[in-house]
């Protein structure tokens, strides 16, 4: 139960940090912000790696693999496409 309180604390504090940091992003960059933030939400890949690699039975293993593919597309594609967009904004100076 103490653990749970600790995790909730982390969750709430991180939310505040998120609000602080994100409000400073200018509207011009809102699309790359979405794709970049989205790539970060692909952190689920951490759980997917363990699920796909541990001693699971058939179904759990298959689900783990599916989750890993989804999350990896999310992470790799998300960071790459964000990079592509941000390069366009930087190009002309």
């Amino acid at each position: 139960m103490e653990d749970l309180v600790m995790y909730i604390t982390v969750f709430v504090l991180a939310m505040f940090v998120g609000f602080e940091v994100i409000t400073k992003v200018p509207p011009t960059l809102h699309t790359p912000l979405m794709s970049g933030a989205n790539a970060i939400s692909g952190i689920t890949v951490v759980g997917a790696l363990i699920a796909a690699g541990s001693q699971n039975s058939g179904l759990a293993k298959f689900l783990g693999l599916l989750a890993l593919i989804f999350a990896t597309v999310n992470v790799v594609g998300g960071f790459l496409v964000t990079h592509r967009m941000l390069e366009m904004f930087r190009r002309k100076e």
């Binding site: 653990d3 982390v10 969750f11 991180a14 994100i22 939400s41 689920t44 951490v46 759980g47």
Partner: peptide, 16 residues
């Protein structure tokens, strides 16, 4: 998963 990395990153994106 009791994993802080997921909790922090998830709530950042949620806030965004």
């Amino acid at each position: 998963l009791e994993n802080n990395a997921l909790i922090i990153s998830g709530s950042l994106v949620g806030a965004s």
